Amino acid sequence: ARYHDEKKIIKDILKDKGFVVEVNTTFEDFVAIISSTKRSTTLDAGNIKLAFNSL
């Protein structure tokens, strides 16, 4: 259940930042955007990776 909650937070962060994940978006770029907000401090690193892979 935590993964789904965190995935929603991640999607909200991406929307707030106006960031669109494209086919050529690197995981490093994705993490940089997510990490640039205070909301990301509680996110699990594994869940961030899973969310990236699912987009």
Rank of each mutant, 00 (worst) to 15 (best):
I33K: 03
I13N: 00
I33C: 09
N53H: 13
Y3G: 02
L43W: 01
I33A: 10
R2I: 05
S54H: 09
E28C: 08
I48K: 05
T25G: 02
S35R: 14
A32Q: 13
A45G: 04
A1P: 04
D16Y: 05
I33W: 02
V31E: 09
N24D: 14
K7Y: 15
S40W: 09
K38S: 12
F19S: 13
H4W: 12
S36V: 01
S35N: 15
K17H: 06
K8N: 09
A1S: 13
K17T: 05
K7W: 14
A1M: 13
D29G: 03
D16C: 04
A32V: 02
T41C: 09
S54M: 10
T26C: 06
K7V: 13
A1D: 15
S54N: 10
G46E: 12
S54W: 05
I10R: 00
K11R: 08
L50Q: 11
T37M: 08
S36Q: 13
R39A: 07
T25V: 01
F30L: 02
S36W: 00
R2G: 06
S40F: 10
D44Q: 06
R39F: 09
K8C: 07
A45R: 12
V23F: 11
I13F: 03
I9F: 05
S54A: 11
F19Y: 08
T37Q: 09
V21F: 09
L43M: 08
D44E: 06
R39W: 10
L14Q: 01
L14F: 01
I33H: 08
T37K: 05
D12A: 11
N47P: 01
D12H: 08
G18N: 14
A51M: 08
T41V: 11
G46S: 12
E22I: 04
A32T: 12
K11P: 00
S54G: 04
A51S: 04
K7H: 10
K49Q: 07
V21A: 05
S40Y: 08
F19K: 01
G18I: 00
E28D: 11
K11M: 15
L14E: 00
D16A: 08
I33E: 06
S40E: 09
F30W: 04
T26I: 03
F30C: 00
K11T: 10
S54R: 08
E28R: 06
K7N: 08
K38E: 10
G46N: 10
V31Y: 10
R39C: 09
V23G: 15
K7I: 15
T41N: 15
T42G: 13
V21P: 05
I33L: 10
H4D: 14
N24A: 08
K38N: 12
I9H: 06
T41P: 08
L14C: 08
D12C: 04
S54I: 13
N24W: 03
K11I: 14
I13R: 02
D5E: 14
F27Q: 00
N47F: 09
I33S: 04
D29L: 00
R2F: 05
D12M: 06
K49M: 08
S36P: 04
D16T: 10
K7C: 14
K17S: 07
S36H: 04
T26S: 12
G18P: 03
E22A: 08
K11G: 10
A32W: 00
S35D: 10
S54C: 05
E28Q: 07
T25Y: 02
V31S: 11
V23E: 15
T26L: 07
S35V: 01
D44G: 06
S40P: 13
F27S: 10
K49D: 02
D16I: 05
K17C: 06
K11E: 13
L14R: 00
I13K: 02
I9S: 05
Y3P: 00
V21E: 07
A1G: 11
A45Y: 12
D5H: 13
D5Y: 14
F27W: 09
I48F: 05
K7Q: 07
F19M: 05
T37S: 14
N47T: 06
K15A: 12
T42S: 12
V23N: 15
L43Q: 01
S35H: 10
A1T: 14
V21W: 09
R2W: 02
L14Y: 02
R39K: 14
Y3N: 03
I13G: 00
N47H: 08
K11F: 11
I9E: 06
F52L: 11
K7F: 15
S36K: 07
E28P: 01
I13Y: 01
Y3E: 04
H4I: 14
R39V: 13
I9A: 05
A51V: 13
D16G: 03
V23K: 15
D29N: 06
D44A: 07
D29A: 07
K15V: 07
K15E: 11
K8Q: 13
V31K: 14
A32M: 06
T41M: 05
T42L: 10
D5S: 14
A1R: 13
G18V: 00
D16S: 11
F27M: 11
F30H: 00
G18K: 06
F19A: 06
L43I: 06
K38I: 07
K38M: 07
Y3I: 08
R39G: 08
I34D: 03
K17M: 06
D29K: 04
L55M: 04
L43K: 01
A45L: 10
R2D: 09
G18F: 00
D5F: 14
K38W: 07
H4Y: 14
K38R: 11
N24Q: 07
T37R: 03
A51F: 15
K17R: 09
T42E: 14
R2S: 09
E22M: 03
A45D: 13
I10A: 00
K49T: 10
D29M: 04
T41D: 13
K49E: 11
D5T: 14
G18C: 09
V31W: 11
T25N: 02
I48T: 04
T41R: 14
K7G: 03
G18T: 03
V31I: 08
K15M: 09
N47R: 02
I13L: 07
K15C: 05
D44N: 06
F27A: 04
G46M: 10
S35W: 01
F27Y: 15
T41Q: 14
A51I: 14
D12W: 03
I13P: 01
T37Y: 12
V31A: 12
K15S: 10
R39P: 02
I34V: 10
E22S: 14
S36T: 11
S35G: 12
T25W: 00
V23I: 11
T26E: 09
G46C: 11
L43P: 08
A51T: 12
A32I: 04
I34G: 01
I34H: 05
H4L: 15
K17G: 06
S36L: 01
G46A: 13
T41A: 11
S54V: 02
A51H: 11
K8S: 09
T37D: 15
E22P: 00
H4Q: 13
K17F: 06
S54L: 06
H4A: 11
G18R: 06
A32Y: 05
N47E: 03
S40H: 14
N47Y: 07
N24S: 10
